[in-house]
Amino acid sequence: MLHQRARPLLGTLVMLRLRDENPARAEQAMAQAFEAVALIDRLMSAHQPGSDLHRLAGARAGDLVELHPHTARVLVLAHYWQRQSAGAFDPLQAGAELARSGLRPALVPALGQALASWSGLSWEAPHTVRLDGALPLDLGGIAKGYAVDCALTVLRQHGVPGALVNAGGDLRAYGPTPWPIELRLPEAPTRTRRQPGLRGLRGAALASSVSGPQRADWVRTGRTRPGIRGRPVLQPKACTVMAPDCVSADALTKWVLQCPAGAPQGRLARVLRAHRARVWLA
């Protein structure tokens, strides 16, 4: 039996699809999964005052900030991917730029202040961080991916046999039967297509990103890169990454989009292999 519910959360529409012959269990599982996503939405909002991101943006050098365990975990993951990608994924730089442009009101307290650095973060306790300045973070897609992962965990804990969680294109699924997947066309978002080599999703996560300055957590923009003898090399317009979890899939899309079109090479290729991730470019 198929059960489906959707709610506006995380700045998008979060959809749950469950295969379960127990309707009561399915309804309870979906309700609690939505609660988990809503909590993450409140904690990591770059728009609402009172969120953990708002408090980090208002910090001063030397301040200790106690965070919700969810926020602490995502901050650690964001720092990990910032280091791995050498800054191709950088929600701190993105947050500062978006705050200056007025697009992230909860991060405005950081304006005009000395900004923290990634190297200046010091964990004094599992959920308490000492900062060397204001930390205006726009966690964007990585928080969305984390919410998808958490929602899926809730559904598993309730014993739901199979499920798909979709938060605006960040997806993760499990169960005995693959879930059919179609990808939106970057040049025509209202249209979809089937991706060769991607017949369905099961036991994995999928995230897609498009290139451009509108990306909240991808700040090195530009449509070309220097090529041989100064000739430009086109970058992909969009990419989709499959990985075991949605946080990794989402962060990797930002890094992949920094590379010229073609197969990822060097460190990126090694990290993709280490995370058992696969890439499709458009």
Rank of each mutant, 00 (worst) to 15 (best):
R7L: 12
L10F: 03
M15E: 15
M15F: 01
D20K: 08
E21I: 03
A29N: 13
M30V: 09
M44I: 13
A46V: 13
L53F: 13
A59F: 12
R60D: 15
A61K: 11
L64I: 02
H68M: 06
V74C: 04
L77S: 14
Y80H: 15
Q84N: 07
P91N: 05
Q93M: 10
A94H: 05
G95Y: 02
G95F: 01
A96V: 15
R100H: 10
A106P: 10
Q113I: 02
G120I: 04
V129T: 02
V129S: 00
R130N: 06
G133I: 08
L139V: 02
G141K: 09
K144W: 09
Y146N: 04
Y146K: 06
A147C: 06
V148L: 03
V154I: 13
L155W: 06
H158D: 09
H158T: 05
L164Y: 01
V165Y: 09
D170W: 01
R172V: 05
P176Q: 00
W179Y: 06
P180S: 06
T190I: 11
T192N: 12
P196C: 13
R199L: 14
R202F: 08
G212E: 05
D217E: 15
V219Y: 14
T221P: 10
G222S: 06
G222K: 09
P232Q: 02
P232V: 01
P232S: 05
V233K: 01
A243S: 03
A249V: 10
L252G: 01
G262I: 02
A263R: 00
G266H: 02
G266P: 06
V271L: 04
L272M: 11
R273K: 13
R273G: 02
R276W: 00
